[in-house]
Every structure is written in structure tokens, then in C-alpha cells.
Amino acid sequence: MDSGENTKLMGTQNFTPCESALHSEVEALRWAMENMLQHSPCQSFGTDCKELIEMKKEPQEWPSFATELEKIETLQICFPDFKITHVPRVRNQFYDFLAKTTRTFRRELLFIGCFIPVWLHRLPQA
């Protein structure tokens, strides 16, 4: 997102299933940060997961996520102006669609871009 909280770049990957939805959120942030280092000078990230934002503020309160949060903290060194903001679900429908569509693919899928390509709008063949 830019300073006006407008989307500059988006991405998705269909990860292997995680222990919980919260683990998936943490993994998605780590993945996004790693990819922004390669593709964009992005410093601001958005999520509809309030728990993820709380984890970033108080990592010691989430001992079961210590390893994952340590990876994110290490990556954050590369983002001097790092910011993560809460995006309410009503403003997150487009990205939720992107994530749900990606999960329907039976083969590995990785996408990073400024807009959703036509082929991603269609449901994959079985």
C-alpha cells in the first residue's frame, strides 16, 4: 500500500495447510515481506486479522508463534518504515476473493502483480 493506503502491489500463493488460520496469517505476512524485498520498495502492509497486528505489538504474549515472529522481526530490519494496518473485512473483499480463488487451484500457484489477471478470475479445472 502507498502512503494513502492505496494498493500498489498484491500477491497470493496457495500455501500448504497450516495448523490454524492464525498460522496462515503469520505465514502470509512473512511471504509478503520476503516478496516485497524483491519486487517493490513497499513499506506498508494491510491485514484483516487483528490478532496478527497484536502479535507484532506484543510478540512475547504469543509464545507458540515465537519462531514465526522471529522470522518476521528479522525481515522487518529491511523495512525501515515498516507499517502494518488493520483493513476491515468490508474493505478487504477483493483480496479475500483473491485468497479464496487461489486455494481452489490444485497445483502450485504464485502471483504477484498490480491487478488480477483474467486467468485467475476463472475457477481452475479439476
Rank of each mutant, 00 (worst) to 15 (best):
E54R: 15
P117W: 06
A66R: 15
L52G: 05
T47S: 12
L110A: 10
R89D: 05
F65K: 13
R89Q: 10
H86F: 13
R106V: 09
F45Y: 07
P63S: 12
E58L: 10
L37Q: 11
F97G: 07
G113V: 05
F115Q: 11
Y95G: 10
A99N: 07
I116R: 08
N35G: 03
G46R: 05
R107W: 10
K83Y: 04
W119H: 14
I112V: 12
F94I: 11
E58R: 13
T104V: 07
C78N: 13
I112H: 06
F94A: 13
L52T: 07
G46P: 05
I77S: 12
P63R: 14
T85D: 06
D96H: 15
K57F: 00
S40E: 00
P41V: 00
P41H: 05
T67H: 15
E73R: 11
A66T: 14
D96T: 15
T85G: 08
K71L: 05
C114G: 08
W62P: 04
S40P: 00
F115I: 08
A66I: 11
R107L: 12
F97R: 11
C49Y: 03
N92R: 11
I116P: 03
W62E: 07
W119C: 10
C42H: 00
T102I: 07
T102F: 05
L52H: 09
L109E: 01
W119E: 08
F105A: 02
L110K: 15
E54W: 13
E108N: 15
E54I: 11
K100N: 09
E73V: 03
N35R: 08
L52S: 06
P88G: 09
C114P: 03
T74H: 10
F97S: 09
R103C: 02
W62V: 06
T102G: 10
H121D: 00
G113L: 05
L98M: 11
P88H: 07
F115D: 09
P80Q: 03
V87H: 06
E73K: 10
T102N: 05
K100G: 00
A66Q: 13
F94K: 15
T104Q: 14
K71M: 06
I112D: 05
F111L: 05
F97K: 13
C78S: 14
F94G: 09
F111A: 01
M36S: 03
C49E: 01
P80L: 02
T101R: 13
L120N: 02
S64F: 08
T102Q: 07
L109P: 02
D96S: 15
L75D: 02
C49A: 04
G46I: 04
C78H: 13
Y95N: 08
M55D: 07
P59H: 03
A99D: 00
C49V: 03
I72V: 08
T74A: 12
T67E: 13
Q43R: 09
